[in-house]
Amino acid sequence: MTDLAPVSPFDASPSAVGRIARRAPIDWTGIAFLTGLAVVILLPLVVTAVWAFAEVWRFPAIVPQRMGLGYWQETLSRTDVWQALWLSLSITTTVTVISAAICFPAAYAFARLDFPGRNMLFLAFLSVQAFPKFGLIIATATIFLTLNLIGTFWGVVLIQLVGTLLYMIWIPVSAFQGVDRRLEEAARDVGASPMRVFWSITLPQAAPTLFAAILITFVNTFYETDAAWLIGLPNVRTMPMVMIAFINNALEVQYGAVLFVFLWVPSFLLMLAARRVMGADAFAKGLGG
């Protein structure tokens, strides 16, 4: 017997936006955090970016003596840079494609199918998290030694692939689980076959998260250093390895800076795209690896 009549606030005055011109109290705590974080988080990155465009910057000048694109030309005409970039892109692409091809179906199975040992196998994937990562890489590298995979393209691909397994399975598992069963059942109801349901309902619904998982895998693999170092060097020299060489050998300071600006900006945009699709939490778990 309630609300028979449509409730419309006929007489309720429209909210008086504008009439109230009061100032919200200023969030001083927040501003303090903001200032602290801006210095600590942004300053290092800004300094790096400035170095990329500094042609001459001698201590103790606060700003560079001369700015310009000179080092861009110099850095980007080095053959080792282009070789490493090409190698890194092919390793990363290979890893991402294989990883998606084997992990997504597995994730679907974990999320939707009932098979013996399902929970135990999933737990096995989680248990990888219980080991310190570099220790695992050492253990795997010992096996690679006997297989002559150290310092080879496929050795690096394999070790990177293993590193991606975890989040390429559990992010998609939650994506598939997030697809409302009732949507699938409704499709079955109107006569769609299970295959048809998967392609027309389940996959499109889960697609954004799957796509985000692919982006994260791509960027993470590209910048991976631990495994690339131990398994790849000295023959397989990926992009981060070249960057580390630039840092360590203290060639021109600007080489490193230029590469960072050159490579990091696109990867940052990719990651932002991934982040838009996923909640911060799921995203962090992906990176938490």
Binding site: M1, T2, D3, L4, A5, P6, V7, S8, P9, F10, D11, A12
Partner: peptide, 14 residues
């Protein structure tokens, strides 16, 4: 006192 209250409290034809 207002049409809003009339519609909100109890059943009402508006």
């Amino acid at each position: 006192k207002t049409a809003f209250v009339a519609g909100f409290i109890g059943a009402m034809n508006m």
